[in-house]
């Protein structure tokens, strides 16, 4: 008796009438109510590309802006290409712009200079303190 051949002789039961129609009707409904139609897919892909581009450019924009701000507060030149407007500090120094703007910018520049001096003093204090605790014990500190 060849088991495999005998198994193939078994007759499967017939599928219920109308099964095909019921299955395909429901599948067609599911397809209609699919989350994204082809047009929506294209739109979603386009939106994704825009979002990715913006996210990719964001660090560059932030870096550029940070360089510009640093140049403004430290008195260095900005990274603007030649031919563009000069930095705000240069405008203050060369006397361009309105009085109120020049005054505000001069105050900003002065504040930046003060912060720079303060930072220099803190660094100096740290440098002097370096190694101060090396020869101390915990009991001495109490």
């Amino acid at each position: 008796m060849d088991v495999e051949r005998d198994l193939e002789r078994l007759k499967p039961v017939a599928a219920p009438a109308d099964l095909r129609r019921r299955v395909l009707d429901r599948a067609a409904e599911a397809r209609k109510s699919a989350a994204l139609s082809p047009k929506m897919r294209v739109l979603a892909a386009a939106c994704s590309i825009v979002i990715i581009t913006v996210l990719g450019l964001d660090p560059l924009i932030v870096r550029h802006e940070a360089a510009r701000m640093a140049a403004l507060f430290d008195g260095r030149r900005t990274s603007l290409p030649s031919g563009e407007a000069p930095s705000e500090l240069a405008e203050v120094l060369t006397g361009r712009g309105r009085d109120a703007e020049r005054l505000a910018r001069a105050e900003l520049a002065a504040a930046a200079a003060a912060r720079k001096e303060q930072a220099r003093q803190v660094r100096e204090a740290w440098r002097r303190l370096k190694g101060w605790l090396d020869d101390e014990t915990s009991e001495d500190l109490i």
Partner: peptide
């Protein structure tokens, strides 16, 4: 697939339900 589901589930109603659900997945 219907007969396979009948084999897995042992009930014609259940097999039909699951077959319909499977085809909905294929459509999606």
């Amino acid at each position: 697939l219907y007969r396979f589901l009948l084999f897995k589930l042992g009930s014609a109603e259940d097999a039909e339900d699951v077959l319909q659900e499977s085809f909905c997945r294929f459509a999606r």
